[in-house]
């Protein structure tokens, strides 16, 4: 099972001004790299991309009433969906935390 959300870097880029999150219903099948939902700041809309393929087995119920929690605690309480991973090999496509940190650092400059 995978838990998907957005990173500290992402919410920082949106200045934590998150006012709306649109997520799929439980049972929806998502596909790696494809949009599964939408995150909106006051003046911006962005797609959310699925890190792995699989069936959505849980959606964070807290976000409907308090989407701002994504901006405050993206790694913990601000999680979005849990996915039943259909192909564990897809995990090889993901960056490690170290690689991700390096990518962010290189994009900043």
């Amino acid at each position: 099972m995978a838990t998907a959300g957005v990173s500290e870097y992402a919410v920082e880029a949106l200045n934590r001004d998150i006012v709306f999150v649109e997520l799929p219903a439980v049972g929806t099948v998502v596909e790696q790299g494809k949009p599964f939902g939408v995150i909106e700041a006051v003046k911006a809309v962005y797609d959310l991309f699925a890190p792995v393929s699989g069936r959505v087995i849980e959606v964070n119920p807290a976000l409907a009433n308090d989407p701002g929690v994504v901006g405050r605690l993206p790694w913990t309480d601000g999680w979005m969906i849990r996915i039943e991973i259909s192909d564990p090999q897809e995990l090889d496509n993901l960056l490690t935390p170290m690689q991700y940190a390096e990518q962010i650092a290189s994009e900043k400059h």
Partner: peptide
């Protein structure tokens, strides 16, 4: 801007 940029094949 892809928010979840954990994918190496992301454009």
């Amino acid at each position: 801007m892809p928010l979840d940029s954990c994918l190496p094949d992301t454009t």
